[in-house]
Structure formats: structure tokens, C-alpha cells
Amino acid sequence: MVDHPTEAGIVLTPEEKRRQRQRNLAIAFALAGLCVLFWVITIVKGAAILQRPM
């Protein structure tokens, strides 16, 4: 959409495109980090993952 200035909508400036790309990368890293986090928790806790003492 943003690559076709003749279409209706906002055209991102190069700086805005750079920021958007940085945000996308940050979200990707955060999601990958979460996957690793849950994997590590599962490995470390093992079956105890289902035991949640008060």
C-alpha cells in the first residue's frame, strides 16, 4: 500500500519506514524471546510446571 503513492492513504517517509522496521524487528525478537523463555521454563520445571503452590 505504502509503495503506491497514487492510492489513497498515508505514504510513509523513509524515516518512518526505518522506524517501522525497527519496531517490527523488536516485536520479532520479543516473540522469539518469549518462545525461548517458555521452552526454558518447561525444561527446568519439567512435570512440576503443573504444580503451582500458593
Partner: peptide, 8 residues
């Protein structure tokens, strides 16, 4: 308001 100007 329409286009985020935020960086990480």
C-alpha cells in the same frame, strides 16, 4: 496520531 513515530 495516524503513523507511529516510535522507535524501540
Amino acid at each position: 496520531a495516524l503513523v507511529s513515530q516510535a522507535e524501540p
